[in-house]
Computed example of a mutant assay.
Amino acid sequence: MKAKLAVLSAACGLALTAGGANAESIGYNLQAIVPVACSLRFESSPSIFADGSARLGMLREYCNAPNGYQIVLNYSTGSLRGAVVNVGAASVVLDGSGQAIVPGAFGPKIQTRDLAITPGANGFDADSFNLAVQVS
């Protein structure tokens, strides 16, 4: 019984080897397209620092854009002149134009950063501003 099994195994191996030499290889070309998705989520936890700046909370950022993203800060034109907005280690001084760009990331990224603001000479003369992701 063992001898018959050994001969059968050898014959199958020879058949596979001979067939493999003449067989064409088959392959698959699989491609996936992933849409760009970015989001900002704000978690409020306000507090005032000794230097007069205000911690607003945490900004949770997610963006899978291959070339990265930036954050656009929109506020009322003519307000918040001279105020400094800090998003993590990035700072931007507002000039009253109504819009400012805060660096995001140079590639896909998930990050959480503190959001704080230091008032300018006119103090907080706007009651709100908004943040949006802009893909680079």
Rank of each mutant, 00 (worst) to 15 (best):
L80M: 02
A50W: 00
Q70T: 08
T77E: 03
D51F: 06
R60G: 13
S79R: 15
Y69I: 12
S79A: 15
I71D: 00
R55Y: 14
P66C: 08
S79E: 10
P66A: 10
L73G: 04
S79C: 09
R60T: 14
Q70D: 09
S76N: 13
E61S: 13
L59R: 05
A54I: 15
L56K: 04
R55S: 14
L73S: 08
S53H: 04
I71P: 04
P66F: 11
L59Y: 04
N64G: 07
I71L: 07
L80R: 05
N74E: 13
S53P: 07
A54C: 06
I71K: 02
E61F: 04
Y75T: 12
P66L: 11
R60Y: 15
C63N: 01
G68M: 06
V72F: 01
L73I: 05
N64F: 08
A65I: 07
L80T: 09
L73V: 12
V72C: 00
Y62S: 14
G78M: 05
Y75F: 15
L59Q: 07
P66T: 10
M58V: 06
S76E: 15
L59G: 04
D51R: 05
Y75C: 13
G57P: 09
L80C: 05
L56V: 10
A65N: 11
A54D: 00
Y69R: 06
L73A: 12
A50I: 02
I71S: 00
L80K: 03
D51C: 13
R60E: 14
A54W: 07
T77S: 02
I71Q: 00
S79K: 15
L80W: 05
R60C: 14
N64P: 09
N64Q: 04
L73Q: 05
Y75R: 12
G52M: 10
R60I: 15
S53Y: 04
L56Y: 08
R55Q: 15
N74I: 05
S53G: 05
V72S: 02
L59F: 09
Y62L: 12
S76F: 08
V72M: 01
L56S: 06
R55E: 12
G57M: 08
A65G: 13
N67S: 12
S76L: 13
N74V: 07
L59C: 03
N74S: 15
M58H: 07
T77L: 00
R55T: 13
M58C: 00
P66G: 06
A54E: 09
M58I: 06
M58D: 10
Y62G: 06
R55C: 08
N67E: 10
D51T: 10
Y69C: 11
R60N: 15
Y62Q: 09
R60H: 15
P66E: 07
A54K: 09
N67K: 11
I71G: 03
